[in-house]
Amino acid sequence: MDFGPHLMLALIEGAVLSAVLALTAAGLSLVFGVMRVVNVAHGEFYMLGAVAAWFVAAAVGGAGPAAFLAALALAPLAVCALAAAADLAVLRRIAHDPERTIVATIGLLYILQQATLMGFGPDARPVAPPFNARIAIPWPVWEEGGLALTWPWGLSVTTYKLFVIAAAAAVLAGLWLMLTRTRAGLVMRATQWDRETATAFGIPVERVYALTFGLGAGLAALAGVLVVPIQQAHYLMGGDALLLSFIVVIIGGLGSLPGTLVAALLIGMSEGIVSVFFSPTLAKILATLLVALVLVFRPQGLFGAAGR
């Protein structure tokens, strides 16, 4: 394939990865920003979203979009409720202490993974996409007599992948509106800013924490549902999701939603673009070092306030 179409394809694939990553990372960023804790089990909520989608789709049955739509509606809610319950049962009782939360969520990670292995099994299982037409993309070239369109071999995208990008953008826009325009968002931001003062103003901080934790997990689960027609549900899929979204959150700057979005684009795109130029494993190494060096020379992240 020629260079131009190859790069184009890498960009499209990067955009899909970025969209999924932005959703997952937004959830982690929310929890990180508001509660100041690292949720090591975040990737498992992403995995649970995908697994729950498989169960819902299998229960509804049929080849049409109904199964997928039901999964899209139900799976994130279920995961959200589960996470909020875990917060109330465990994290609240250790007062959201940062170090203890790491251990507790590692424990939660083991529990969720093993439970999934027993209930769902070790196989990767697909959910049929609601629609999945292949769209060939034209590529302009100069020929004698002017611009002509060609159809390079392999340059294409599926309608479902476009839907994933659009859905992620819509959800993130909704999240942004909720945080900035609604009372619930105000309460969350107030809690993030100063927990003591928020308590003094009568904000039920514990309940806000549980809801935030649930919302963060729900966003991860939603990303899991969106990805399952592309990548299948598997009980170990949470590990990479956690690492990548963790990186995105820090690069973007703690608690900054626009920063998270930009960082997700940076990470999602950089791997794709670098892979056009280098052998794949070397490309991964270079992309990893590149991102690490961004942090070394800008430790507060791209959008973080300096000297925090």
């Binding site: 690292v38 690492l243 963790f246 990186i247 820090i250 690069i251 703690l254 494993t281 991964k284 190494i285 990893t288 070092l289 991102v291 690490a292 060096l293 942090l295 070394v296 020379f297 430790p299 507060q300 992240g301």
Partner: peptide
């Protein structure tokens, strides 16, 4: 390199150097 950062950024920078090392071995 990593000590230019602190806190969570230090966690991530060390994580990423370790990933690069792992991939380098492969």
């Amino acid at each position: 390199l990593a000590l230019r950062t602190a806190g969570v950024a230090f966690m991530i920078v060390t994580l990423m150097f370790a990933q690069a090392t792992h991939l380098g071995i492969l």
